[in-house]
């Protein structure tokens, strides 16, 4: 695993996610698989099990969601999980514990926290950055904070050495792409389509152009999210993006109306592992010149985790 902790080539950016993405691009000629799950769904302990399942089955980078009462950029699946987590008593501070445990479990996997802005504002942006850095977190993805409003966060993330992942959308103007590329650290999150998170039959046709435009605006790494649900879609996006971000398709196998007994929860984790492996195979098959067998390939661990 030592080769995974340090990039063999390319400059050190000081950004864990950028270093990982660079290494995957240069050594494995593939996109990173970024997997989202919310903290605390269905409970904090079980969310840690689910996150470890993602890591075991081929996710390269974790996007850890903080459940929030008013998630305006999320569709029904993630809304339901966020509400379930809040109903089960999830707290913002749980995120630090989960980050710490994931770091202990898989130090090579950067963990970015995805959060709407108000929980961070309430915690205090600098205190939040300090505690996240201390827990070993890599940075934040902020769906409702644009760089124009992000002065406090930009300052805090600089001070504590954290990544800042801002979003761009197909509607972003060239000026805004330049601004966002310039203020992001780690990568830029490109929304594949105009809409909220959710499982869709097709990835937005504007995604490839948006990635090209965002690179042209100065972003070294551009990952694509919204609507990616299957290995085939991951392969399609992995052809042109530096990372493939998947959320609802990973949350969906875990959704239930009430608490699950252990054996049923184990089945959910098996389902989650299968979805993850399909996606992991997708990003590994995306580019024609990709090596047929990658050392950390998901298929090698298929079916072994449980």
């Amino acid at each position: 695993m030592s080769t995974l902790t340090e990039p063999a080539t390319g400059p050190h950016t000081g950004s864990r996610s950028a270093d990982l993405i660079t290494r995957l691009r240069e050594q494995e000629n593939r996109a990173a698989l970024v997997g989202y799950l919310p903290v605390g769904y269905p409970t904090v302990d079980r969310s840690i099990e689910a996150l470890k399942t993602l890591v075991d089955h081929g996710v390269d980078l974790i996007e850890l969601g903080i459940p929030y009462t008013d998630p305006v950029l999320d569709g029904p699946v993630i809304q339901a999980a966020a509400q379930g987590a809040l109903d089960a008593g999830a707290r913002v501070r749980d995120v630090f514990r989960v980050v710490r445990e994931l770091n202990d479990y898989a130090p090579h996997v950067p963990v970015l926290v995805m959060t709407y802005w108000n929980p961070v504002l309430k915690y205090g942006p600098d205190a939040f950055a300090r505690d996240l850095a201390a827990a070993g977190g890599a940075g934040l993805i902020t769906p409702d904070l644009i760089p124009d409003e992000g002065a406090d966060w930009i300052e805090a993330s600089e001070r504590h050495g954290l990544d800042r992942v801002f979003l761009v959308a197909p509607s972003s103007t060239p000026e805004r792409l330049r601004l966002t590329a310039g203020q992001s650290r780690g990568f830029v999150y490109a929304a594949s389509l105009m809409g909220v998170t959710g499982v869709r039959n097709e990835v937005g046709s504007r995604a490839e152009q948006l990635v090209a435009d965002t690179r042209a605006a100065g972003a070294p790494n551009v990952c694509v999210g919204l609507g990616v649900a299957t290995g085939a879609q991951a392969a399609e996006v992995g052809r042109f993006a530096d990372g493939v971000i998947v959320g609802s398709a990973l949350v969906r196998p875990l959704l239930s109306d009430g608490p699950l007994p252990d054996d049923e929860w184990a089945v959910r984790l098996t389902n989650l592992a299968e979805v993850t492996e399909d996606l992991a195979a997708g990003v590994r098959s995306a580019r024609a010149s990709a090596p047929a067998d990658t050392p950390a390939g998901a298929k090698t661990t298929s079916g072994e985790a449980l």
Partner: peptide, 14 residues
């Protein structure tokens, strides 16, 4: 005040 919304809406707000 301000604009604490997803980037996708900024062009329309402009």
């Amino acid at each position: 005040g301000g604009r604490f919304v997803p980037e996708a809406l900024i062009a329309a707000l402009e």
